[in-house]
Amino acid sequence: MKRGKRLALLWRAAIAFALAGCDRTPGDVREWTPADHDQPGQPGAQVSARPAGDGADQGLVDLAWQRNCFTCHGSKGRGDGPQGPMVRAPDLTDPAWQDRVTDSYIAETIRKGRNQMPAFDLPDQVVSGLVQRVRASRAR
C-alpha cells in the first residue's frame, strides 16, 4: 500500500474513533455547578486552608523544621546539620543561649533571618510551633 493511502486510512480511523466518543446521550454527563463544591458558611466568607485549632499542626512544624532548619541546625537543634559547621549554626539546645534569648527574638530570627540564616515566610502558627520546639530542645 502506498504511503498516501495509509495516511488517508489512518485519518479515517482517527476520525471514526473520535466520533464514536460522541455517541453518549446527554444524561451521561451533567453540567458542573458551583454547588458541586463545598461552600463557605456565610456568603462572602473565605475557606481557610489552615487548621481551626489554636496551636500549630505538629506535622506542619516538623515539615518546616525538616525543610528549613535541619540543614544547619540538625535534627535536635545542636547546629550539627550537614551545613551547620560551615555556617556556624548555633547550638539551640545550649542552656546559656536559651537563657539569653526570648521567644520573640527566636520568632523574629525565623521571620527575618540573621547573619547567614535566611528569612522564612511561614504562618504565625508554624513560627510559634518552631519556637516551642526550640525551647523544648533545651539540654538538661
Rank of each mutant, 00 (worst) to 15 (best):
D80V: 00
Q42K: 13
Q46H: 06
K76G: 09
G77H: 02
Q42P: 04
P51S: 11
D62T: 01
A56T: 02
A52W: 09
A45T: 03
R67E: 15
V61T: 01
G59R: 14
Q46Y: 10
P43E: 11
G53K: 10
Q58N: 00
T71P: 01
Q58W: 13
S48E: 14
A56H: 03
N68H: 13
C69Y: 08
T71E: 13
L60G: 11
L63D: 14
S75E: 15
D57Q: 02
Q46I: 05
A45D: 14
K76N: 14
A45W: 03
G44N: 08
V61H: 02
A56I: 02
F70D: 10
F70N: 10
A45I: 05
W65V: 07
L60W: 08
G53C: 07
P40G: 04
D54V: 03
A56D: 10
T71W: 08
R67G: 05
D54R: 07
P43G: 01
S75N: 11
G77C: 02
G55Q: 15
S75F: 11
D62H: 06
P43H: 07
T71Q: 09
N68Q: 14
G81H: 03
A49D: 14
R67K: 09
Q66M: 08
D62P: 00
R67S: 09
Q39P: 01
T71F: 12
Q46S: 12
G41K: 14
G53L: 06
G77L: 02
R78P: 00
C69G: 03
G55L: 12
D62F: 06
G55A: 15
D57S: 08
T71L: 13
R78V: 03
D80E: 13
N68I: 06
A64Q: 06
Q42V: 00
D57Y: 00
W65Y: 08
A49C: 09
A56N: 01
S75K: 12
G77T: 00
P40W: 03
G53P: 04
K76W: 05
Q39K: 11
G74C: 10
G41L: 15
H73G: 02
Q46E: 14
F70W: 01
G77Y: 02
G74D: 06
S48V: 11
G81M: 00
V61E: 05
F70S: 05
G53S: 12
G44S: 05
Q42R: 09
C72E: 08
G74P: 07
L60K: 08
G74L: 04
P43V: 07
D80R: 03
Q39R: 13
L60N: 07
G59T: 13
W65L: 02
Q42G: 10
G59Q: 10
P43F: 06
L63Y: 06
P40D: 04
F70A: 06
C69M: 08
G55N: 06
D62W: 00
S48R: 11
Q42Y: 12
Q46L: 15
G53M: 12
G77D: 03
Q46D: 12
Q58C: 02
K76M: 09
R67A: 13
A49V: 15
A64P: 06
C72T: 05
